[in-house]
Every structure is written in C-alpha cells, then in structure tokens.
C-alpha cells in the first residue's frame, strides 16, 4: 500500500486540476509552468483548499473523501508544509517558530541551526530560513512532507550546497514527499520521480532518466531542457535506416526515431557540439548559424546557435576562442534525437 494516495478534482481559474497520484516513501517532484496548479495540489493535500471531489489518503487514514464527506481540517492532518518564501513567523525566534509545530528535540541540531535558536527570521540568510522552515514542518512528526519551491528563495551560489543538504535530508527522512518546483534540474537532483504538470493535468510521471530518454511530448522535452525543433518528415533514407526531417528553416536532419507528418525533433544541449566547420566524425546533423549568445552556468557554457542550444565546457570555448556573432556549425548525431 502506498503511503500517500491522491485522486483530486480542484477547479482553478481557467481549468481544473485533475490528478491521480500515489507515492510511497519517496520524493515526487512536480514541475511545470507557473499557474499549472502545483501549489494548489500541495494546499489541497494539506487541507487548505477543498477539492470538489476525490480522495486524499495518507498512511491508510482518509483525510478527504468527497463521496463520504470526510474532510479533516488542516490542523488534523499530519502534513509538514514548507511554504514558498518559507512563511516563518516574523515575531517569533527560530526556537519558538520550530516549537510552534511541536516537540523540537534535536531538530535544531539535526538541521544545523542550533546556534540560531534565539535569532529572528529577519536576521537569517535564505539557506538558514529554509532549514528553519524544514525543522518547523518536521516538528509535527508529519506523515507527508510538502515542499513548495524550496529552492526558489535562494541565491544561485548557495543553491548547490542547499540542494545537496536537502537531498540528503529527504533520503534520511523516508517520508512521502511532494516537492513543487519550476526548475527541472532541482527536480531531477532531489526527486526519485518527476511529474510534469501542465494546465492541471499530469503530462508525464517517471524517473528523471525516463523523462529525459522518452519525453511524452514536446512540452515535457522542452521543460526538461531539450531543444525542440519543429519540422516535417520527408521520408526515409534509401536504406530505410533513418528518418529525414525538414526543419522550418529548410535544414535537412536525420533521426533514428520513426515519425510521420509534422513532428517535434528533440535533442538535448549536451548532445550538441559546436565547431568552426562541420566535423569529419560520425555526427550526421549540422546546423549552420551565428552564435547568438554565450552564457556561463557554473563550469559550463550554454551557446545559442540558430534554433539550438549547445552545452559546452568552458575549456572548449576558450580553446576554440568562440565569440558571440561568429558563424559556426552545431552538430549532433542522429541517435541523439527523438521525434515526438
């Protein structure tokens, strides 16, 4: 039996959140554009939003059942909620914030915030606030953990560390955890399974690897960071091994995937290489264009070439002396493409 079972219909402004989800003692990340209903989902589990129908069952206890009229109040559900921006009580010290939720034995120590016990939330850094919010949510000894954009309020350079710490904590807790984020990378690094929520519907739910390897549609692919190129299938190569796709700009590319008619061709940035001329290697596909931008992200550089984003190492960019505005060739193998 799964620890958390959801089956919900919640009307939102222009669509309804309709979703069925079961989670064991694992972290399920929900990603998707803003307004997709992610936060509403968490609020519904916590009892802050009432669904029109459906069921919420946690560890065998029915929290909501539209059919039988069961609807536990938020304070009766044992859900640990970490809100976006953390919602710490500004007039209470760290210690009292955590104690508001229940017993705090060792929680401050465990989360490394014991030295901040007397501090006010306003005096804490983003990472510290996140830990206080986690400690407060855990003080209730919750049966399910709900995290709403836990990384959004952090500055980029603390994100990496905080993410690693959070990942470690979630693994130790072994609680069913729903984590909402708009960042696919956060989702993949923190969660066992990732669900893509668009307009209130779950487009795809799977492990990060499954989502990357076989995105259900163009949206999931682009959300996962893939290049999505529109085109239509011209036919097969004479040996019938590859599909020929004409892109919108007329470029002909090849894919090992099958498809017909209008298609979306997906290729991930890390599968795209950039050079001054087409390399004499196994890559079949070449897109010529100017470098529109070079953005450094950590130790990687994301280069925009025509419709493609390529992920390169900073060392390669230096070695090739790539500059914005230069004409280059972006190449990728036919095996690195997916047709959707």
């Amino acid at each position: 039996m799964d620890a958390l079972e959801l089956e919900l219909t919640v009307p939102l402004r222009s669509f309804a959140l309709e979703l069925t989800l079961a989670a064991g003692a694992e972290t399920v990340a929900l990603v998707g554009p803003s307004g997709a209903g992610k936060t509403t989902l968490l609020r519904t589990v916590a009892g802050l939003v009432r669904p029109v129908r459906g069921r919420v069952v946690c560890s065998g206890q029915v929290w909501f059942d539209g059919a039988s009229g069961v609807d536990l109040r938020p304070e009766e559900r044992s859900a640990g909620f970490v809100f976006q921006e953390y919602a710490l009580f500004p007039h209470l010290s760290v210690e009292r914030n955590v104690a508001f939720g229940g017993r705090q034995d060792g929680l401050l120590d465990r989360l490394g915030i014991a030295h901040l016990a007397k501090a006010r939330p306003a005096d804490l850094s983003g990472g510290e606030r996140q830990r206080v919010a986690l400690a407060r949510a855990l003080a209730r000894a919750p049966k399910v953990l709900l995290l709403d954009e836990p990384m959004a309020a952090l500055d980029p350079h603390t994100r990496g560390t905080v993410r690693a710490e959070l990942h470690q904590l979630l693994r130790e807790l072994e609680l069913p955890t729903l984590l909402v984020t708009h960042d696919f990378e956060d989702a993949c690094s923190l969660a066992d399974r990732v669900g893509v929520l668009v307009d209130g519907r779950l487009r795809q739910l799977g492990t990060p690897d499954e989502l990357l390897a076989a995105p259900a549609d163009a949206f999931v692919a682009s959300f996962a960071g893939g290049n999505v190129l529109r085109g239509h299938v011209r036919g097969l190569t004479p040996d019938r091994a590859l599909t020929e796709v004409t892109l919108e700009d007329g470029t002909l590319v090849y894919s090992t995937d099958q498809g017909t008619g209008e298609v979306a061709l997906v290729v991930y940035p890390w599968a795209v290489s950039v050079g001054r001329e087409a390399p004499p290697d196994s890559a079949l596909n070449h897109v010529h264009g100017e470098i529109a931008s070079l953005v450094t992200v950590g130790n990687r550089v994301r280069a925009r070439v025509g419709p493609l984003t390529a992920e390169l190492t900073a060392a390669s960019v230096r070695r090739l002396g790539l500059q914005v505005g230069e004409r280059v060739v972006a190449s990728f193998k036919a095996t690195a493409t997916r047709l959707l």
């Binding site: 304070e75 044992s78 640990g80 909620f81 508001f100 949510a137 003080a139």
Partner: peptide
C-alpha cells in the same frame, strides 16, 4: 500564508 502555515502546524 502565515495563518495557513500555523494551521498546517496543528494550530486550531
């Protein structure tokens, strides 16, 4: 949100 947070922390 603070009031919601208090509810989820078990406060009536």
């Amino acid at each position: 949100t603070l009031l919601d947070a208090a509810r989820t922390l078990g406060a009536a």
